[in-house]
Amino acid sequence: MEEKIISKENLLKLCSDLLKNNVDIVTPGEKGYIKIKNESEISLNSKSKHTKASFKEYVFPKSEPIIYYKKNQSDVEIIEPKVEEKTTVIFGAKPCDVRSISILSKIFNWDYKDEFFNVRSRNTVLIGMMCEYADEFCFCTSVNLSPTSSDGSDVFLVPHDENTFGVKIVTEKGADLLKPYENYLSAGNSEKTKAIEASVKQPEKVFDAEKVRQWISGNFENDYWNSIGKMCLGCAQCAFVCPVCHCFDIVDEDYNYYEGRRMKNWDGCQFDMFTKHASGHNPRDDQSKRYRQRISHKFKYYPDKFEEILCTGCGRCSRGCPVTIDIKGIVTEINELAIK
């Protein structure tokens, strides 16, 4: 992996040039990931807290049309929308966020290929940054990630000091992005990067994901699920701020009698309506069954199918939960039950 150094000044120039060249830059802002208009808005703070929502929306929008239809007497005309091929740079994302794209890519590309996701992720360049924030909800190390992991990033930044950043060029896509701006980069100092990475405080590893997976396999009917089910209020805050939750709904919306569109909208497994049949029968008719699905999907079903944990340990779901249902605490408890 090639390594370079960039000064803060040149980094801002780089962003300014990218913006001029019609590249969208998305960065962690005060309230969430934002599309910036000016390079000064760029986030260079590796100590910042996670944004409330992840940048998932930029590759998998909260609502998007999948077809437009026009009705004419008894005939119907269908128009398929095209996703714009425009480069988006996600700048300064934490390793736990960056990793989400490759995890999501598995579900959107097994069997049928979801072009809406693929066009966007193909056009997204991920500039990750080492993370120096860890609170009691963080657990990236328990899901095989780390605050210094460049896994998933195209380019990875390691702050050497306030005005200097180590630049790891991880992928070809990253190299292609930086190529026109080579003069902003100088020779790398990988020794320093390594030393800084080694000094970063790692969240403690609190569970063994494999043990958790095995426990879930044998404990579908365990009473433990009820203890969480009665506390959960059944909203989808956790799923919607999650970088890797990907369930969706499909609904039609008429503009008027003749025209409309079919929308793909985020949906969440904690909603009672999610699995309710038209007949009224609901296979997951209790909040504990729905919560069991959430944890099982993340730590068993997805790993079984795609060899990937459906969780990056960012802790967003727990920080934002109205009743502080803490996924880290729950999975740690499951780990303890598994050891017993």
Binding site: D267, F274, H277
Partner: peptide, 12 residues
């Protein structure tokens, strides 16, 4: 079962 996509993605 309740389905939406039929393609193994929508998760329900």
């Amino acid at each position: 079962n309740r389905m939406k996509c039929g393609l193994g993605k929508c998760g329900r």
